[in-house]
Simulated assay, not measured.
Amino acid sequence: MPRTVTVSYDSPLGPMTLAAVAGPQRAEGVLTGCWFDGQRHDRAGLGTDARALGGPDAAQGPQAARSGGGAHGAPGTGGAADGGAWAVLAQALAWLDAYFAGRDPGPRPALAAPGTRFQHLVWDELLTLPRGSTRTYGGLARDLEARTGRRCAARAVGGAVARNPVSVIVPCHRVLGADGSLTGYAGGSERKAWLLRLEGVALPVDGRLAGPVAVGGEHHG
């Protein structure tokens, strides 16, 4: 059975928790969650068997691996069974470091968040939104209709976006209300505004866009 491993991350917007799994079928590890601590749906779906890396474990785990140290399978850290989880967590931590520093973070770590088929369709659509662009919930629903050939309600899309368990890395913060309002973000509107400004989106004082930024440009972030 894949074992879930979690690690804390100190972001400019407050502490975050990341989760990953590794096992016989997932030797390289996959990221299953990335939440702002205390957000809506914080750590939803995270099993009770999840093991947090802390103290000596963290020193030998993803934090050390990110800086070039650490040995996968070191004593006291769960052994080689967690090596894939450490590897993907190290990649995710480095990705977040680059992103919050305003740099191109490069390819995303491997993702395997738990969710329904519809939720995964919506989350996959989020991955097509380039850094520095925005889309409305209605626009995202129309994109999904064009992709699947099935009618899709903006409200249903909004529900799936709000349930995105991989904050920042899967950019649900790039989705706006029909009037450009910063609504629906599980991490809160202040974080949403901060992330959009980091990406170069011009927001007025009231945190509302006159209209969504056209989708285009580089596909990263």
Rank of each mutant, 00 (worst) to 15 (best):
R51C: 13
G187W: 06
A98N: 06
S181C: 11
Y99G: 02
P15Q: 12
P204M: 11
R147Y: 10
A58G: 05
V5N: 00
L198Y: 02
W123Q: 02
A81V: 14
T183Y: 06
N164V: 15
A20E: 01
R103M: 14
A50C: 05
L176I: 11
L127C: 04
G102P: 03
R43C: 05
G138E: 14
G38F: 11
H173G: 04
A87T: 13
L53D: 12
T116N: 00
H219Y: 15
T77R: 08
Y185C: 05
G149N: 14
V213F: 05
V166N: 03
P56M: 15
A193K: 09
D82R: 15
G132H: 05
A90N: 03
R51D: 15
L196C: 04
R163C: 10
R150G: 10
G29R: 03
R66I: 12
L93M: 12
T6W: 00
G68Y: 03
S181M: 08
Q63Y: 13
G69P: 03
H72Q: 14
R151Y: 11
A52C: 11
P212M: 08
P15E: 12
A74W: 06
T183A: 11
G221W: 09
G200W: 07
L126P: 02
L198V: 06
G180H: 00
C34G: 03
G61M: 11
Q91Y: 05
G83R: 15
T136N: 04
T136P: 04
R108Q: 03
A50W: 02
G79E: 09
A186N: 09
D97I: 10
A58D: 10
W86L: 15
F100G: 01
T17P: 03
V213T: 10
A113P: 09
Y185A: 07
L53S: 13
Y185S: 01
L203W: 05
G177Y: 01
V21S: 00
G216V: 14
V5C: 04
L89T: 07
L46E: 04
A22H: 11
H219S: 12
G78T: 11
T4C: 04
P2R: 09
A64K: 01
D143N: 12
A27F: 10
A44P: 01
T48S: 14
L93I: 13
T77M: 12
G139A: 10
S181F: 08
G106D: 09
A44F: 05
L18E: 00
A59N: 08
E199H: 04
G184S: 04
Q60M: 15
S133W: 06
G55I: 03
L144H: 03
V201M: 07
H219E: 15
P62N: 08
P24S: 07
T183W: 07
G221Q: 05
R174D: 08
A64R: 01
W35R: 02
G23W: 06
A154K: 09
G217A: 10
L46K: 00
D97L: 08
G33T: 02
V161T: 03
